[in-house]
C-alpha cells in the first residue's frame, strides 16, 4: 500500500477509535511475538533490546503469563 493509498479518517471519532484499535492490536502482537521469541529460546535481554524497553519491563509484563503457559524460560544467556 503506497502512502497515498493510506486513508486518513476525517471524522475525529474514527481517528480516535483507530488509535484505540491500534493500541489493542499492538498489545496483542506484543503478547504473541514475545511468547514466540521465548518459545524459540530468546533471552529476556534479547527480547527487551528488540522491543526497545528494559529487561525489567518486559519481564514484569510477560513472565507470569509465560510461566502459566508452560514456556521454558532461559535463566541465563
Amino acid at each position: 500500500m503506497s502512502a497515498e493509498d493510506v486513508p486518513v479518517p476525517n471524522d475525529p471519532s474514527d481517528a480516535l477509535a483507530a488509535v484505540v484499535a491500534l493500541r489493542r492490536l499492538a498489545d496483542q502482537l506484543e503478547d504473541a511475538a514475545v511468547e514466540q521469541a521465548m518459545r524459540s529460546g530468546w533471552s529476556w535481554p534479547e527480547v527487551a533490546e528488540a522491543l526497545g524497553v528494559t529487561r525489567q519491563a518486559v519481564h514484569k509484563k510477560h513472565a507470569k503469563r509465560l510461566i502459566a503457559g508452560g514456556v521454558a524460560l532461559r535463566r541465563r544467556q
Binding site: V6, D14, A18, Q28, L29, A32, E35, A68, G70
Partner: peptide, 19 residues
C-alpha cells in the same frame, strides 16, 4: 477502526498468547 487507517486484521495471523 483498524481499516480506517489502512490496517487489515486479516493480514495478522496471531497465535493465541498464554494468559
Amino acid at each position: 477502526s483498524l481499516n480506517a487507517v489502512g490496517v487489515s486484521l486479516a493480514s495478522f495471523d496471531l497465535p493465541t498468547p498464554s494468559r
